[in-house]
Nucleic acid binder design. Structure first.
Lengths: 161, 161
DNA sequence: AATTCTATTGACTTATTTTGACCTTGCCTT
DNA sequence: AAGGCAAGGTCAAAATAAGTCAATAGAATT
């Protein structure tokens, strides 16, 4: 009983391609990849959509027809200001509890933040949320904007470090 | 159900999983766990909410759908309750901005927390303070108690040495 | 005895992965 | 230039699994 979904396996494989190639881009063939993992080609699109989106720091370029290909490029940032800006875009003006947690998890997985840093952030966010709910009786939308504010402050402060 | 509520049994079981596993994380399936203990799946959520919260030093990451899972990470040593109590005393029910900052600085100097961790804590505290002042127009005393609460939650969640 | 906190349950909701049928694009051959 | 073939793209349904919420039940506290 395999605990990993095919999507994860393929996603991990693509990440190893990045490691091996040491460049910031990887080119692959949808058909071949699908055959390699014994799945339907559209599964590859799903992997790309769910694991290599611009949100997650990747850009994808592809070509159909005879000599089709899929190119995945990893975004890089010139300086910490640019990175901070990217983070602010990522969070936006409003963010749900779930999305905030997912973002923190992703950052931790990528070793942008440590588990302890993530823990502090989560505790701070939860605390604010709880106060908003119980003390000030704030509507969900207000809490979502306040969550975004706090999360941005935290992440941007770390980006500068 | 004094000593052996199902919740306690399941919580203890999860703790044994931590002992058995080498690392500081455990991955489980809500459905299987529920079946193992003959309860409804949502009971597992209750166990997690009540025993494995970030405030208690755990982080939870989960995924729905096919190959769904629940991953619990333990970020502090289980037996620091004593020290945690000490921290609660240290912070007290009320703490000024200056004292909070001094405490964080001291902890950082002692290398109990890293500079980045201190930064997150300060950002969170300042953010809460500012909201309290500008958004809710809270009196200083209230802000001092809320500051103490947040600081304690953060420090206790790390429960460090 | 009343209240309040903690636990249990289940109906309903949301999210993720997998699969396949059908669509679009573009090189290449005729 | 037309048509064929070889990519890749889209979309939606099915399968699977977790989350939420509120009603209830049970324990503990006052």
């Amino acid at each position: 009983m395999n605990v990993n979904s095919l999507t994860k396996v393929i996603g991990d494989y693509i990440v190893t391609l990045f490691d091996d190639s040491e460049g910031s881009e990887v080119v692959l063939s949808r058909k071949d990849l699908a055959r390699k993992f014994g799945c339907v080609p559209s599964q590859i699109n799903y992997v790309l959509r769910s694991r290599f989106s611009p949100e997650q720091g990747f850009l994808i370029q592809s070509q159909r027809g005879g000599h089709g290909f899929i190119r995945i490029m990893q975004l890089r940032f010139a300086d910490c200001d640019e990175y901070a800006e990217h983070l602010e875009d990522l969070v936006g003006n409003v963010i749900s509890e779930q999305d905030a947690r997912k973002l923190l998890a992703r950052l931790q997985e990528r070793e942008t933040i440590t588990p302890r840093e993530r823990l502090i952030a989560e505790v701070a966010l939860r605390n604010q949320d709880e106060n908003g709910r119980t003390l000030f009786d704030l509507p969900p939308y207000k809490r979502d904007t306040m969550r975004a504010e706090l999360l941005k402050k935290i992440l941007v402060s770390l980006a500068m470090f």
